[in-house]
Nucleic acid binder design. Structure first.
Lengths: 225, 225
DNA sequence: TATCTGATTATTGTACGCAATAATGGGAGA
DNA sequence: TCTCCCATTATTGCGTACAATAATCAGATA
């Protein structure tokens, strides 16, 4: 990390802030303001913004600058549909190909989710949830598929960063994970795929209902304030 | 197009050159050389390169610059596996959701492929082939899935831009398309998906054997000459 | 001869300034 | 009061210069 460039560090910082929800969809990313904030010139800022744009966490329009990505409900549904299929594929290949160490790791992360629920620690559950999904991607033994799936997950997660799971939803989520993990541990590829698709679909319904009824801040707002 | 920026035009130009095979994997993209060639300063070149990097057609390493993306055979197989799954998904949703106009368009593009074969025009077949696949993505009614699938297709196509299909392979390819199109026209989602996955798998075998036996120019060469 | 080291060169990273374009705001007319 | 138009302002696009780092090469030593 020490030999990295300024622009890359800035891109990483902004990426984290977007994923954490500290920056909201539609927020404009003014080059000069960012330059002032990071105490650098506009040059590394421009590089960082273009690098970030490649993840689609921010959007660029020529001569109008960058803004944190917005989304409409139709695209949100499309992304969740794609995510379900992709996560299902990862789960399938994971069930068919994961080695013993990877399977044990997945089992352990699933346990950590249960522990988080026992402690009523929703943030810890969110973290365990993310780690479990990533472990499944990693164990699918296809880096290209893993990268694509993770990109979609990140694009989605920025839109519900501010919604914490309810305790009820968390318990349900863990049960759905249970099915996925069971299938993976017994090498049932199709079962794992189906279970994962169901899990993502239920998450989608949950999140979309939260977002659509949350009208404090519309998701699709024009670039200009 | 007229109100676009220099950097975007340059990015488009370079993208086309890579997809056409005029630039080869591993070719370094020197900022000053490109600036001289396009008769601009390095600024729009830098912007264009970072924009291009988002498609993964070129790769960037800090302080070592950009180069046309290279690939090893393992990653190539992974990409084809992902491509097969994604194209299969597009075909499935296309079969289930395409409207009458889209179905007719797909049927017509498939006919054009046959016409190209009759004329022994391999370039025309390649074009019809690409158009058919794109029409299927478009008709899947999920823009996110379409974009992801197209990106993977482009990443793959740059590696076999220089290999023209043999007449034998083209005939076989058309037959495989026939199965896909048949399923789509009769709303058979699973059949379309399976047929498309088989088609991509056969293409993969064909291309990979071409590439691996073509040792004139290794695909994975270090950035430094 | 091969390898290591230090100086030199080439290339990218960053800063800064001007130009071009878009956003903003105020005044005139209806 | 509302709308349109023009001047003003703010922001991005592009050019240029310098700094920092990596690549290259020559010479010394084993």
């Amino acid at each position: 990390m020490a030999n990295s460039t300024l622009s890359r560090k800035i891109a990483n910082t902004l990426s984290e802030e977007i994923l954490k929800g500290e920056l909201s969809p539609g927020d404009r990313l003014d080059e000069q303001s960012l330059a002032d904030r990071f105490e650098v010139s506009r040059s590394p800022i421009r590089d960082a913004l273009r690098e970030l744009a490649s993840t689609r966490l921010i959007e660029h329009q020529p001569r109008r600058g960058f803004a944190v990505a917005t989304i409409d409900t139709a695209t949100l549904r499309n992304l969740y549909e794609a995510s379900g299929e992709l996560e299902g594929l990862c789960a399938k290949y994971c069930a068919l190909r994961a080695d013993a160490v990877q399977r044990e790791h997945i089992r352990m992360l699933h346990e950590q989710g249960l522990e988080a629920i026992r402690l009523h620690d929703m943030a810890a559950y969110a973290e365990a949830n993310h780690a479990l999904h990533r472990a499944i991607y990693d164990a699918c033994h296809n880096d290209a598929l893993r990268d694509i799936t993770l990109d979609v997950r990140n694009r989605l997660s920025m839109f519900h960063a501010r919604f914490l799971f309810s305790e009820g939803r968390v318990a349900q989520s863990w049960e759905e994970h249970q099915e996925v993990v069971d299938c993976i541990l017994r090498n049932d590829g199709d079962g794992a795929s189906d279970a994962m698709k169901r899990h993502v679909a239920k998450t989608a319904v949950n999140i979309i209902s939260h977002i659509t009824q949350d009208s404090r801040k519309p998701m699709r707002q024009p670039l200009t304030t």
